[in-house]
Design a protein around this nucleic acid. Structure first.
Length: 586
RNA sequence: GCACCCGUAGCUCAGCUGGAUAGAGCGCUUCCCUGCGGAGGAAGAGGCCAGACGUUCGAAUCGUCUCGGGUGCACCA
């Protein structure tokens, strides 16, 4: 058991001894003001039960508490609270040894049973990734890592919507704007079109631009919808020329996305493609019709959920092409086939889709699927001037953001370290840029709208990712300096140094990490780890300010170096859980 | 109209399984580099925790209502 839980448990047990009843460690609280002590117990409930004043009970408890052979050095009643204080050096030793012994397993929680399949990083192809998608990816990566660390059996999977309605619309626009007739489009026309598209236009950005223009064109002239439908029908029927055009344009996007995903630390056990379940989706719609779950209405196929006050879901459009709903049903079925031992199926999506996922869950239940999908929702990313929309084209693309932040990070690195070689500059700038982009998004509550502000993304001071990296790298440079001075960081018993209050504060902070990770996993809130990292960086900076590590006798130097090392390791681990790399120096 | 989410310092946000004077960061005003890295640190100003009622010994935290803001509600995902 880690120090933090052990201390709470010990305190609770000793209280229980005096009270002759059991006290749960969860009833132990941490005073906001460290001057009160390290742990506290409030006597309000007991006071009510016993008809005595809380202060009198606190006095009594403090007088009878036996804390010998524990890490606690002091006990005091203050008003209605019993406060206990840890001996500084015992506390520091305990925590440093925990981290040194456990190494990577320091935060690892006990394995929970079951299998949770989590779908995230599920954008559309034929569009460009923007900062709204970034929130999904950042949260997804952090969720997977924190939950796994907390012992939850999370299996990350990806799903690419590569034949959505936007694709038909985009390809329709592409073909007709290159002067071809969509109705007679064949392989020779395809060659002419592809020949005209120079390599620099073979990007998601270009396809996204075409999509925006296509939307505008269809809005200007509704009769064009028929051509768009025609194209979508050809795609679903696998007509060769259209299928080839689709495959080619899709590749541009997938290549880009693969790079971005790798950059952002996305890992999935299985990558699904909407296009692979197109045919099955058509069958699913027919099955639902046959079973009477779905019905025809106004030429479309729908599922009526009015009885459950969930409205109506359209599965197949009047023109016979499929909607995302039909494909999600087929996907749910497929996931179940591939993960028969799945106990939960989660999909990370933005708030706008929460009603839709309740509808989907309801349909799946009608089909007798036992673990229907659950949407893990987060709020939108908006711009200061309002919402973003690919259809309207007012988006901040991920590439724009990345290029800007990376250039700025590089500039700052070069300014500080003109002597560094290119490889080191590039890697460090990359690590800082990732931290800059990601941290703001993970630290904020997913239920809150994230207002994207470029100036904020470029701030590397204050409550930011680079601030945390900086605190950790400073711990690293103390260790490096010690090494260069010939001080060896030995293992074994720690010296009896460790007496400064900021040293203790830092150690207690490090002690919390396993519980923070456990809670973060249980509540699906990676933000808790982000807040821990911020507080720890502050504690590390205070330690750095108050305690000159490389002074004094060798024993205390080594003890403090080990605290530095433990701090760096813990911060590195927390950053990893958030999907943020830590450079050696910065 | 119905449903979901949000309303805490000028701004961006923590705190919300009820408990000791409501916390950070940014911005603003003053400071701190012959010391282990100033991407840092110290201090200060700044709050009827949207409002009302209720539950409780105790409410930013729980409940109900009101008022703001956002989002969704049939062929986009």
């Amino acid at each position: 058991m880690h120090a933090w839980e052990q201390w709470k448990k010990t305190f609770a047990e000793r209280l229980g001894d005096v009270l002759v009843r059991s006290i749960s460690p969860e009833e132990i609280l941490v005073p906001q003001n460290p001057e009160h002590g390290d742990f506290a117990f409030g006597c309000f409930k007991l006071a009510k039960e016993r008809g005595q004043s809380p202060a009198a009970i606190a006095q009594d408890l403090a007088a009878h508490l036996r804390l010998d052979h524990t890490d606690f050095a002091e006990v005091a009643a203050v008003g209605p609270y019993v406060n206990v204080r840890l001996e500084t050096r015992d506390a520091v030793h305990r925590v440093v040894r925990d981290i040194e012994t456990a190494e990577d397993a320091y935060v690892q929680g006990v394995s929970k049973p079951g299998k949770i399949v989590l779908e995230y990083a599920n954008p559309n192809t034929h569009k460009e990734l923007h900062v709204g998608h970034l929130r999904n990816i950042v949260l997804g990566v952090a969720l997977v890592r924190t939950m796994q660390a907390a012992g939850y059996p999370v299996v990350p999977i990806g799903f690419l919507n590569d034949v959505g309605s936007n694709v038909g619309k985009t390809l329709w626009y592409l073909v007709q704007s290159e002067g071809e007739d969509v109705r007679t489009f064949d392989e020779t026309a395809l060659e002419r079109v592809l020949h005209k598209i120079l390599p620099e236009r073979r990007t998601g950005n270009e396809l996204g631009r075409l999509y925006t223009e296509a939307t505008r064109a269809v809005e200007a002239d509704e009769t064009r919808k028929e051509d768009v439908s025609f194209v979508q029908q050809q795609l679903e029927a696998h007509t060769p020329a259209w299928e080839q055009l689709w495959r080619e344009t899709r590749r541009w996007c997938i290549d880009e996305m693969a790079q971005i995903f790798a950059d952002l630390g996305v890992t999935v056990e299985r990558q699904y493609f909407e296009s692979d379940l197109l045919d099955r989706s058509h069958e699913v719609v027919r099955d639902l019709l046959a079973k009477g779950i779905a019905k025809e209405s106004e030429g479309a196929v729908i599922v009526d959920l009015e009885e459950e006050k969930l409205g109506v879901v359209v599965l197949r459009k009047q023109d016979g092409t499929l909607l995302y709903s039909a494909k999600d049903l087929a996907l749910a079925e497929w996931k179940r086939a591939e993960y028969p031992d799945m106990t939960a199926s989660w999909v990370l999506v933005d708030m706008r889709q929460s009603l839709y996922f309740r509808q989907l869950g309801s349909i799946l239940k009608k089909l007798g699927i036992v673990s229907p999908v659950e949407a893990i929702v987060y709020e939108l990313v908006t711009l200061p001037e309002g919402a973003m929309s690919s259809r309207k084209g007012n988006i901040v693309t991920f590439q724009q953001l990345r290029d800007t932040v990376l250039a700025y990070a590089r500039e700052e690195v070069v300014k500080r370290h003109p002597e560094w070689h290119e490889g080191k500059v590039a890697h460090t700038a990359w690590a800082i840029a990732i931290a800059g982009m990601k941290f703001g998004m993970v630290k904020q509550d997913p239920d809150k709208v994230f207002t994207f502000d470029l100036a904020q993304q470029l701030a590397f001071d204050g409550a930011t990712g680079p601030y945390i990296q900086y605190a950790a790298t400073r711990m690293g440079s103390i260790l490096r300096k010690a090494e260069s001075q010939g001080v060896r960081v030995t293992d074994g018993e720690l010296s009896r140094a460790a007496t400064h209050p900021t040293e203790k504060a830092l150690a207690l902070q490090l002690a919390k990490l396993p519980s923070v990770v456990a809670q973060s996993g249980a509540e699906r809130k990676p933000a808790l780890v982000a807040h821990w990292a911020l507080e720890t960086a502050q504690a590390a900076n205070a330690f750095y300010r108050d305690v000159p590590v490389l002074e004094g006798e060798i024993g205390s130097q080594v003890a403090r170096l080990r605290l530095c090392r433990a701090t760096r390791r813990a911060l590195e681990k927390a950053l990893f859980l958030l999907g943020i790399p830590l450079p050696d120096e910065m």
